[in-house]
């Protein structure tokens, strides 16, 4: 069975003066039509790089991209920059974290949306402007016709992100990649934008990859979660499963370190240490150094041998301990054995 989008063994490496930075190390990700998947991870986990690779933004650059990105039967990695242009904006739309810097400061919002439409549709400027105004109305901008003539800096943060969404969706792409679209926004505005994205997603039945570091946002919006660590998928499962029985020690650690609005306000349980250096990746499990569970396993197993992504029904986990049934049951509280905290030295 082939998925709508299927990323297999994706590697993205950047040559630098200090050596090769391995930002993505064998990433796997699949997506069905109409599905919303949350791509979760901390900074440096490779989530943004993965989405930019899907968009083909590393073509014509020094970055080395390998693996396969199969989109409706076409391998996007092997496409030329010119062929890839037919996908960008038309079949895959993208929105970014900071809409103020992601929009051109010198063109009006309407012009920028109309431009996105005219790239892929042979219409007059006037017709494209009509489409842009219509689109601004659909994303909930009041008085869309006059606001279309405003510049991005004249919009508020939330309005700009709405305009950005209008620009990404104006050609009705089948896949929308949202790269931390609400991180820079206030919670009340974030809530509006999440409502908008899920509303439009249901209306158009497009698939969404939602990149975020916020598990709460994932719980609100997504059907499935992919957790990234060190440029790999370490766990993926339906939202319900991951919050009820997180499989990977890293996922458990993330949940335990999040302050909550309703639990008791005891001490938080941070994950000790810091993420692996991408210049010099460890041979074994990328999380082994910070993992308390690794100690329960045979000497050196986690540090020597990189675990594979094992499939248990609709739940995939990349962990030696999980594979051996050592972590099979239990919610975030199972991370209780992961107390112990140290400076992130």
């Amino acid at each position: 069975m082939t998925s709508f989008l299927s990323v297999k063994d994706l590697h993205v490496e950047f040559p630098t003066d200090d050596g090769l930075v391995s930002a993505v190390n064998g990433m796997d990700l699949s997506l069905e039509r109409g599905e919303t998947v949350g791509l979760v991870g901390e900074s440096g986990s490779g989530k943004s790089v993965t989405t930019q690779a899907i968009m083909g933004l590393f073509k014509d650059s020094k970055a080395r991209v390998s693996g396969t990105i199969d989109f409706e039967g076409t391998d996007l990695i092997s496409l030329s920059e010119n062929r890839m242009r037919e996908y960008r904006g038309k079949k895959i739309g993208m929105i970014f974290q900071d809409p103020l810097s992601a929009m051109h400061p010198f063109y009006t919002v309407g012009e920028q949306i109309a431009e996105a439409y005219r790239v892929h549709n042979q219409v007059s400027k006037k017709a494209a402007k009509e489409v842009a105004v219509d689109m601004l109305g659909r994303v909930g901008i009041p008085a869309a016709r006059s606001r279309a003539d405003s510049y991005p800096h004249e919009f508020s943060g939330g309005m700009r992100q709405r305009a950005m969404i209008a620009m990404a969706l104006v050609c009705e792409p089948e896949l929308l990649i949202a790269d931390e679209p609400t991180t820079a926004l206030d919670v009340t505005v974030q809530a509006q934008i999440l409502d908008l994205i899920s509303g439009l997603q249901q209306e158009t039945n497009s698939a969404v990859i939602f990149v975020t570091h916020d598990l709460g946002v994932v719980a609100e919006l997504c059907q499935r979660v992919v957790v990234m660590y060190g440029g790999q998928c370490v766990e993926q499962a339906p939202v319900r499963t991951i919050f009820r029985e997180p499989g990977h020690p890293y996922t458990r650690g993330l949940m335990a370190s999040m302050p909550a609005l309703s639990d008791e306000t005891g001490r938080l349980k941070p994950i000790p240490g810091s993420p692996p250096a991408l210049l010099d990746l460890p041979k074994g499990c990328l999380f082994a150094e910070r993992c308390e569970v690794a100690k329960l396993l045979p000497e050196g197993l986690c540090r020597e041998e990189r675990p594979l992504l094992r499939i248990h029904g609709d739940h995939e986990v990349r962990c030696h301990a999980h594979e051996r049934g050592l972590l099979a049951v239990g919610g975030p509280s199972a991370a209780g054995n992961m107390k112990g905290e140290s400076a992130d030295v």
Binding site: A191, G216, E220, R240, L261
Partner: peptide, 23 residues
């Protein structure tokens, strides 16, 4: 404000959430 914070608790009932309008 409290209502707008996305929660990891599933089934928190997003229909009942208070949504502030505008900016």
């Amino acid at each position: 404000l409290l209502s707008a914070v996305p929660s990891v608790e599933l089934g928190a009932g997003s229909k009942d959430r208070i949504r502030l309008q505008g900016d």
